[in-house]
């Protein structure tokens, strides 16, 4: 659909509406950034500017550890889900076999089922087999809910894919492994990238699954925050969040700029 035919009035209305939605999405983020520079410990009134909380944060090993844990869990579960999910998407796209729809059904479950159900189900089974709760159990749990998302994104990419390109490669003397490496993977790379991005995002933002599958020594950043909510979140957490916001912001802006330049260049 194109922008043509929009009256100036409609355009203004649309801009105002979008601005309000983004204001809604970013208002609390603005508060976080603002209070990370607040001299008061209570996040209620802005009293004066300070960078102290960034120092406090740097010295708060528990907090830093929780962030490191979050990143470890997110990276490992993303890697796992990308490998398993991409292979599955390709295999299920290319072959028709018995049990295909059963796998499909299993993949839909984590997407639609409430996270709390998945969380307690995994917890129950982990405890049944006496698996210690910690980083590993969290990585496995996160990979479990990420795999379907990777499968679906890669599959969406594959559906616009001419399977005769693979045949052509084989026809020209490439064996199956070469076809996979030189044709299939490069062609679905954007889908894999999007799937990985999604898996990573879901993992670092996850609270509920982590809440059930974490152990005493493997606190992630979200769980750390959850723990602090009762006693009040201290501004050093805001400082850390501000840094995360700035980094992700920078990443998104650069990738978009690069993209824009490349599109313009072509």
């Amino acid at each position: 659909m194109a922008t043509q035919g929009q009256t100036p009035g409609a355009r203004v209305r649309n801009t105002v509406f979008s601005a309000l939605v983004y204001a809604f999405l970013y208002a609390p983020i603005a508060v976080i950034v603002l209070f990370s520079f607040n001299t008061s410990r209570r996040n209620i009134v802005f009293e004066g500017f300070t960078l102290d909380w960034y120092g406090v944060m740097a010295g708060n090993t528990q907090l830093i550890d929780s962030l490191v844990n979050t990143l470890i869990v997110a990276s490992c579960s993303t890697l796992l889900s990308v490998i398993i999910g991409s292979l599955a998407a390709i295999g299920m796209y290319r072959y028709r076999f018995r049990g295909r729809s059963a796998i499909d059904a299993l993949l839909y479950i984590p997407v639609v089922i409430p996270e709390v159900v998945l969380g307690i189900a995994l917890l129950s089974v982990f405890s049944f087999v006496n698996m210690p709760l910690g980083l590993l159990s969290m990585i496995i749990a996160h990979a479990t809910f990420s795999i379907p998302f990777v499968v679906f994104t890669v599959r969406a990419r594959l559906s616009g894919f001419d399977s005769s390109t693979e045949e052509a490669a084989m026809d020209l003397g490439a064996n199956r492994l070469q076809v996979f490496r030189r044709i299939t993977v490069p062609l679905i790379a954007p889908g894999i990238g999007a799937g990985a991005m999604l898996a990573f995002t879901l993992s670092i933002d996850d609270i509920i699954i982590s809440f059930f599958t974490t152990g005493a020594t493997s606190m992630t950043f979200p769980l750390k925050v959850m723990e602090m909510v009762r006693s009040g979140v201290s501004p050093d957490v805001y400082a850390l969040s501000t840094i995360i916001i700035l980094v992700t912001f920078a990443v998104v802006v650069t990738t978009q700029a690069v993209r824009y330049r490349r599109e313009k260049g072509q």
Binding site: T165, A168, L172, N175
Partner: peptide, 20 residues
């Protein structure tokens, strides 16, 4: 013999060029 072992080559209807 697999397709890659046969001494025949194919021109596909959809061309099947490698887009990348």
């Amino acid at each position: 013999k697999e397709p890659f072992e046969r001494n025949v080559n194919t021109v596909f209807q959809s061309y099947a060029l490698f887009p990348h």
